[in-house]
């Protein structure tokens, strides 16, 4: 598998600085602007995630990056090649796993793999060194109709089919949607191994907890990028003091905290409530003392408050509120 960025010698674009360069990219469908002036660079060898809900524009962006859609404005380059001008060259070099089930249900697992290999002018044998770690788990079901595989196995087969031609970059559009928590974790373990081999991977997901597995992420909402950075930096940049609040009556606590005059954001987070104070720069201890007093006066007397670091989901909601004025 070649990992050099370039193609033909002498082409000034052959060694691309970035695996993906998106510049002011806009795509409309009728009245709807699906992607609205997005710019982002993805480095060679990066595992890069687009995180956002349905309708954020992730799929439109992915379809454009893999040359299936043409920008209305702006430009998109992949491996230094323009997705419009150089589409035939690019198509041979990108791997793409669409969000919807993309296999032939009436063909066996092996037949699907053979089909995708032949479309790209290669063979399963030639691609085996790349897909072997994944295919190993599928091999016992090689003869089974793809339509009769379990969800997790279908997903692994689709990944094999996207990789069998040894692409230089892999695009995965919501590979884990609807998959249970443990299978999702296993899928990300596979992506880690592919990335360790030097492959550039671009992945989208609606699951905030998956962001942590990426080198960098772009938070996407309503066709725009809210933020692009490492997961750590996104958490670190949270602009206000954040606390985890625990009390027996979690719902009652939600209501009480929302009535606190300095509350900026109050959301349930699993077994705790995340409380963001509107006052930047105030000492954590003073905020905690004020909260305990306020809650006590409202009849919640077992409040435990702890200052915490923000995660991706906190940051996403904060920027969403800022964008929409929620």
């Amino acid at each position: 598998m070649t990992r050099e960025a370039g193609g033909s010698a002498g082409d000034p674009r052959a060694v691309a600085a970035h695996a993906v360069e998106v510049r002011d990219f806009t795509k409309r469908f009728g009245q709807v602007t699906a992607v609205d002036g997005v710019s982002v660079d993805i480095a060679q060898g990066e595992l890069f995630g687009f995180i956002g809900p349905d309708g954020a524009g992730k799929t439109t962006l992915f379809r454009t990056m893999v040359t299936l859609l043409v920008p209305d404005a702006g430009s998109v380059k992949v491996l230094g090649r323009d997705v419009v001008d150089d589409l035939w060259e690019l198509r041979a070099r990108v791997g793409y796993m669409p969000g919807r089930f993309s296999l032939y249900p009436d063909l066996s697992a092996m037949e699907n793999l053979q089909f995708f290999a032949s479309v790209f002018g290669t063979s399963v044998e030639a691609g085996m060194s790349i897909i072997e770690p994944i295919w190993r788990q599928l091999a016992p079901f090689a003869g089974r109709r793809a339509g009769a595989l379990s969800g997790g196995m279908k997903q692994k087969l689709a990944l094999c089919c996207a990789l069998v031609h040894a692409p230089d970059i892999l695009f995965l559009d919501e590979p884990t949607t609807g998959v249970d928590a443990v299978s999702r974790r296993e899928f990300w373990d596979l992506l880690d191994r592919l990335r360790a081999g030097g492959l550039t991977i671009v992945v989208s997901t609606p699951y905030m907890d998956e962001a942590i597995r990426c080198d960098r992420v772009a938070l996407m909402q309503k066709g725009k990028l809210l933020l692009v950075d490492t997961p750590q930096a996104i958490g670190d940049a949270y602009p206000r003091p954040l606390f985890a609040v625990r009390a027996t009556d979690r719902l009652g606590t939600l209501g009480v905290l929302r009535r606190f005059p300095h509350a900026a954001a109050v959301w349930p987070f699993g077994e705790v409530v995340h409380y963001t104070d509107a006052r930047a720069g105030m000492a954590d201890a003073s905020i905690i003392a004020e909260l305990e007093t306020f809650a006590g006066a409202s009849g919640v007397d077992d409040l435990e408050v702890q200052a915490i670091d923000a995660g991706i989901e906190d940051a996403f909601m904060w920027h969403m509120m800022a964008q929409e004025g929620v």
Binding site: P53, D54, A56, L251, W267, M320
Partner: peptide, 30 residues
Amino acid sequence: GGVDPITRRRFWEMIYETAATGTTVLVTTH
């Protein structure tokens, strides 16, 4: 499935309001 984290939480608040009226809720989730 598939919604942003704020919408997801608002949905759960609807679930709670519904349960508070005495309606039983059985829910599956990932």
